[in-house]
Design a protein around this nucleic acid. Structure first.
Length: 424
RNA sequence: AGAGAGGUGGCCGAGUGGUCGAAGGCGCACGCCUGGAAAGUGUGUAUACGGCAACGUAUCGAGGGUUCGAAUCCCUUCCUCUCUGCCA
């Protein structure tokens, strides 16, 4: 959530930023925000004055009671009745203006970083880096869902029976490979200095609000109404919320965490080949990295994350590229996002396997995650996160790119984790 | 699920109707002391909103109520802990 003060002081910047996202009616919603804010402040001033008056009289009444001047006290009492009604009306108005302002602010996405280009869709994302060689598999190359069946390592039908579409069952070497990937990623992340955490897979409403999944995006999460809890669509929610409401010291920076969790996404409304196999699931595994940073350092930190993710893909020897998302494709809460995509040779397409973002103060504002600055004032921290990495598409990439006539080779770095070097 | 206890500042913790934004401690900042440090010692130290500022207002889990006046009394609600039950 943007800070009102920021919108007030930097209206042009905000409008330009929203234009990059192709955010509709930016002009009018910003005007609404400003007018709601103005009303709110004006109401607050009158309310404050009324209450000040009333407080003053109360003190006088107290003094009269003490000195035994009961009559004077009762006279004043009458006066407070009026003030009370006034202040009640004013505080109701204040409440209305505050909620109105709040719900407007909830609709406004983060302002993109200056490096982000305007654009409407993923077609306008900028390719900024690519590495690795695309293997020559010949014409018998199979997509991963065929390979999964051929080697009996992932059973989609069985998942359908147990739960429904998008909940695969991993079997044998497939299951072991999943576990190997999780351990490998966690080891890489902890070696890079991230503290490993294990967090709940269900979160309350306050947590989902603070990282921006609520309000408005509740349709994307599974919800347990009995207890009013949400299944996490990403570990970003519990991990970032560990620091909700915290007031940090300068020496606490940087905070770096990594955690493995399953992720649950309802993801309604996508069909066809693009969602086949592992391409899009309702439940999948992901290892996440999260950083809480001083604002001055957050973009360095984002680069550090990007370099870290690169090093993992390099070790896995997967051909990948990095995109800087354009305004329209950048998530609601992010200021700058780099997507990592692995080339899935047999499908002849790129699969997103990681996304690293700087949210600047957008989440911190909702999280009330602050630190004491040099002047001793509290200031919002910056939050960042990225996947390192999301499993299913990495798995798809490995299965497809490492397929041979004899079976699927296991990338060298994973062999210590799997205990086998070939799926056949 | 049943019974009980409790939620107060960065943290711990006192506070049962006005003098309480709140004792005390810890932490933190600055100073003294010291060759330097530790210890000791002095001072300062909540947040938000409005205001150029003086200052005003609000906040003692949240929301209502009683009262001229509520951290304190009443109601509702959320959360945490302990015991009992159930269970990995």
């Amino acid at each position: 959530m943007l800070q009102v003060q920021f919108i007030r002081d930097h209206k042009e910047t905000v409008l330009k930023g929203l234009a990059k996202r192709n955010f509709e009616n930016a002009e009018s919603i910003i005007e609404e925000v400003l007018s709601a804010d103005e009303k709110r402040r004006a109401t607050q001033v009158s309310l404050d004055n009324t209450l000040a008056e009333s407080n003053k009289i109360s003190k006088e009444i107290g003094a009269f009671f003490k000195s035994g001047e009961i009559q004077k006290a009762s006279l004043l009492k009458e006066k407070t009745g009026q003030l009370k009604e006034q202040s009640k009306a004013l505080s109701e108005a204040l409440n209305e203006h505050t909620t109105a302002l709040q719900s407007l602010l909830f609709q406004i996405p983060n302002i993109p970083h200056t490096s982000v280009k305007a654009g409407n869709s993923e077609d306008e994302n900028e390719r900024i880096f690519s590495e690795g060689t695309i293997p020559n598999l010949g014409k018998n190359a199979l997509p991963h869902w065929e390979l999964a069946k051929k080697y009996n390592i992932i059973d989609f039908e069985l998942g359908n029976k147990l739960t429904g579409a998008g909940f695969p069952v991993y079997k044998g070497k497939g299951a072991k490979l999943q576990r190997a990937l999780i351990n490998y990623f966690l080891d890489k992340n902890t070696q890079a200095g991230y503290t490993e955490v294990q967090v709940p897979h269900l979160v309350n409403e306050a947590s989902a609000m603070a990282t921006g999944q609520l309000p408005d995006k509740e349709g994307q999460m599974y919800h347990c109404p009995e207890d009013d809890l949400y299944l996490i669509p990403t570990a970003e929610i519990p991990i970032t919320n560990m620091f909700r409401g915290n007031l940090l010291q300068k020496s606490d920076f940087p905070i770096t965490c990594t955690g493995y969790t399953p992720c649950f996404r309802r993801e309604a409304g996508s069909y066809g080949a693009h969602v086949r196999g592992l391409n899009r699931l309702h439940q999948f595994d992901k290892v996440e990295i999260v950083r809480i940073e001083h604002p001055e350092n957050s973009y360095n930190a984002l680069n550090t994350m990007v370099e870290h993710i690169k090093s993992i893909l390099r070790e896995l020897k997967l051909p990948y590229r990095i995109l800087r998302l354009c305004g329209g494709d950048t998530g609601f809460t992010a200021a700058l996002t780099f997507d990592f995509e692995v080339f899935s040779t047999a499908q002849d397409r790129w699969l997103e396997i990681s996304s690293a973002s700087n949210f600047e103060t957008f989440q911190a504002n909702r999280l009330k995650l602050r630190f004491k600055n040099k002047e001793g004032k509290s200031e919002l921290a910056h939050t960042l996160n990225g996947s390192a990495l999301a499993l299913p598409r990495v798995l798809a990439g490995i299965l497809e790119n490492y397929q041979t006539a004899e079976g699927i080779q296991i990338p060298e770095v994973l062999i210590p984790y799997t205990g086998f070097s070939m799926i056949n």
